[in-house]
């Protein structure tokens, strides 16, 4: 109305224009590059190949589990149980492998395969329970997955009595934990493959299309004849399956089945997805940006480690970064909404 009002308004508009012109999610890639340059200038070790590979490997686990979380968020849900699924998978796979390996030391690969199958199946089963309870009984996903989280952690602790499961076949840790191709850990290739497949699924298949549709407007989807219940169950199952994969890979990395393995992953996976632009209201989210979100978190952690920032202070920084990243994104949505 008055000049100052116009000036501020102009400034706001200019700011919004910058945000709007930035591609799709906008700030994240730019932020990643800036961080990359900043850490490198401050601590040249950061740019070394070995360190970068390390960052990639550390972010791989988070990428897989966050991609699963993204699926559930996009369909309009929520999964608090992913961390517990990691723990349960780790324990289940670990116990089966260790027992079979102890019984038949020669058949290590058979033990590994059966252990993997059992672990992945147990983990996915949690997803089926989540999906069925959310879709059929229409209980809030928050509460359902809170419950299954408690159940899965409880089971994992009960089975192991809190003691890590040792005695896994060496081949397992070697193949899945430490193996490198062209000096890059095999986990990184696997993650790239999973993200690629999910990208394809979300963009080129009926499943992906329906996940977006259901998250955007479940009523419209139902009316259009999409079997929404089935797709919700499938999505929760996929999420738990991916969490189970993460559980198996982490087990291979630490070399034992542990009931405390996934404790921080639930919050981190949601943080990575949200930083990657996934809407908590459903319908919006792209797997490639979620991967970037996970990479971002890993990069920040790694950089701070190299800068010798106290690990306790790191949690403060990550918390603040999360709020600010989403706050900026919020400004962008407002700018577009006009």
């Amino acid at each position: 109305m008055v000049d100052t009002g116009l000036a501020t308004e102009r400034a706001v508009r200019a700011w919004r224009r910058i945000l709007e012109r930035s591609p799709a999610i906008g700030l994240l890639p730019i932020l990643l590059i800036l961080l990359f340059i900043f850490f490198g200038l401050y601590e040249p070790k950061f740019w070394r190949g070995a360190n970068l590979i390390n960052v990639l490997r550390n972010s791989s686990y988070l990428m897989i589990i966050s991609a699963g979380q993204m699926l559930v968020l996009v369909i309009g849900g929520f999964d608090l149980s992913v961390g517990a699924v990691v723990a349960l998978t780790s324990v289940a796979a670990g116990l089966v492998m260790a027992d079979l390996y102890a019984a038949w030391p020669d058949a290590a690969s058979l033990a590994i395969v059966i252990g993997l199958v059992v672990g992945l199946a147990v983990g996915s089963a949690i997803g089926v329970i989540n999906g069925v309870t959310v879709a059929f009984l229409r209980v809030s996903p928050f509460m359902v997955t809170l419950g299954t989280m408690s159940i899965a952690f409880g089971l994992a602790l009960y089975v192991t009595r809190g003691v890590p499961v040792y005695g896994l076949p060496d081949e397992f840790t070697r193949e899945f934990g430490r193996l490198r191709w062209f000096n890059v850990p095999v986990v990184v290739y696997l993650t790239a493959g999973i993200i690629g497949v999910l990208w394809w699924v979300m963009n080129w298949t009926r499943l992906g299309r329906y996940v977006y549709a259901i998250g955007g407007n479940i009523h419209a989807s139902r009316v259009s004849g999409i079997p929404t219940i089935a797709y919700i169950v499938i999505t929760y199952t996929m999420c738990s399956f991916l969490a189970a994969v993460t559980g198996v890979l982490l087990t291979a990395r630490v070399g034992s089945g542990e009931a405390t393995l996934g404790t921080t992953l639930m919050l981190e996976s949601i943080a990575a997805a949200v930083i990657g632009g996934v809407s908590l209201r459903g319908g919006v989210g792209r797997v490639e940006f979620v991967a970037l979100g996970a990479l971002f978190l890993a990069l920040v952690t790694n950089g701070m480690n190299l800068l010798r920032v106290d690990s306790k202070i790191q949690t403060i920084v990550i918390g603040a970064v999360l709020i600010i990243a989403v706050g900026l994104d919020q400004m962008k949505i407002k700018g577009r909404g006009q």
Binding site: R209, Y212, A213, G216, N217, A220, S224, G225, G283, V284
Partner: peptide
């Protein structure tokens, strides 16, 4: 409307019978 807001016009036209 029975439209999914985050999908495109074309995607909505075929929604449920892709």
């Amino acid at each position: 409307f029975s439209l999914a807001p985050d999908l495109t016009v074309e995607e909505n036209l075929f929604l449920g019978r892709e």
